[in-house]
Design a protein around this nucleic acid. Sequence first.
DNA 1: ATGTACGTTGCGTATTTTGCAACGCGACGG
DNA 2: CCGTCGCGTTGCAAAATACGCAACGTACAT
Lengths: 256, 256
Amino acid sequence: MSQSLSRALRLLNELGEGPRSLDDLAALLDVHKTTVLRLLRTLEGDRLVFRDAAYRYHLGAGLFALSSRALEQRPVRATAAPHLAALNRETGHTVHLAAYEGGEVVYIDKYDSRHPVRMYSRIGLRARLHCTAVAKVLLAGLPEAERRAVAGSIEYEAMTPNTLTGPEALLAELSRVAEQGYAVDHGEHETFINCVGAPIRDAGGRVVAAASISVPAVLLDFEQVLAVLPDLLKTTAAVSADCGWHEHPIKKAEHH
Amino acid sequence: MSQSLSRALRLLNELGEGPRSLDDLAALLDVHKTTVLRLLRTLEGDRLVFRDAAYRYHLGAGLFALSSRALEQRPVRATAAPHLAALNRETGHTVHLAAYEGGEVVYIDKYDSRHPVRMYSRIGLRARLHCTAVAKVLLAGLPEAERRAVAGSIEYEAMTPNTLTGPEALLAELSRVAEQGYAVDHGEHETFINCVGAPIRDAGGRVVAAASISVPAVLLDFEQVLAVLPDLLKTTAAVSADCGWHEHPIKKAEHH
DNA sequence: ATGTACGTTGCGTATTTTGCAACGCGACGG
DNA sequence: CCGTCGCGTTGCAAAATACGCAACGTACAT
């Protein structure tokens, strides 16, 4: 592990909370300000930070540039964007897109609800593997062995009274999700938020992303959230088609 | 300057070009792979990179998280978003939002054209100070002395036959921009692209961002681009109002 | 003019980083 | 099955870099 690099990353995270002076940042790291200045100079060279006229440091536009390239490496995001924007407009609720990568489920796009009461989230945040609709969809799309390995490695924190609290319960839920083609979060992550999630598939049929609709219970109860599921499924089917996915004919048709 | 940190940042930039192995990255930096592994481990700890099942490294979701926070620190972006999205839908052309920070003009949002032929750009990229509409708008919004200092520090690369090639010409153009309330890029940055840009103001009247419409000449000639200027001006006025800007009454009204 | 706050520069040493050598694992070929 | 290859990983001592000190520079207030 690299100590200098860790310090620099701590600086970036701190600046995510707001502008800071050289002295602020030196105090944060408990090092001499010369040390911090050198790190900042290096970060500034790549535009990851900039310094304003009052000598306060801010996160810089180089982060957007890196982030944009990272997002471009996830083509499903651009493919899904118009569809999810439309779903957000039609339902008025928060729509998320998430992907499974590096052993975690992360939000890679978001369309905010128009309502004043909404669920807090942000692109780049991790979704809890055991209690969110998108995570269930993505885990359900993994091969059986990998699904079991992941389920066995999770720390099952009971977020609410509804949260699944062990691998057996989660694996059973994931089987249901794989069977029915969608997932629900019935107040499992946050007591007063309900979500439905559905898979987006690529040309080879692999689940490459999950889209969801999240609604605070003050707006819609769980049954009403289920009522928007067909819209979500239609949307994910359209995105999947754009990703090259073709629905297989039903088995009966093959007997002709 | 910090050598370790520089190396890590080079890794991030390289991964912006696509997935890489440990050996690829060690060759890039011309260091032993142990050294690279330690840097990657540190980056992985903050989710700035992740390693897939084939041991290839990718840019990670922690970048989205940092970038999201950086964007949240630029509230004009959220304020402008619905307006710019509407402008993009109504005109069908590429719409950009840019800000002046750390001595450079950077794109902080973008709404892509629906047309197959469009201008290449990306959030986080810098706009050329001497030949883009957004840069002219933002520089024109600076205090006179600062404007002159910036104009004197630019490297005037002649991108096209139309490009302004010296501080006197640019300062004269900026005076026109400040007077008329909008800027044009008449094939100055790229021969076959025309743009119009307009300022977004905050409650104190300072220019805090610039919005623009960019059109390839194969779609609209310069006169036709000017024809969409009223839509742009209406949009930037609406965003400015949402930022707290109030148009001052004209001088005649004060004589009552 | 002096003092304070805070950013900046140059230098030698202390600490961290680095690369070597060896190991571990999986895939492939004989 | 065994051996080899390719490539990731670990532990250690030496090399290199990072670090903090001391001093300086600038702006502001008294």
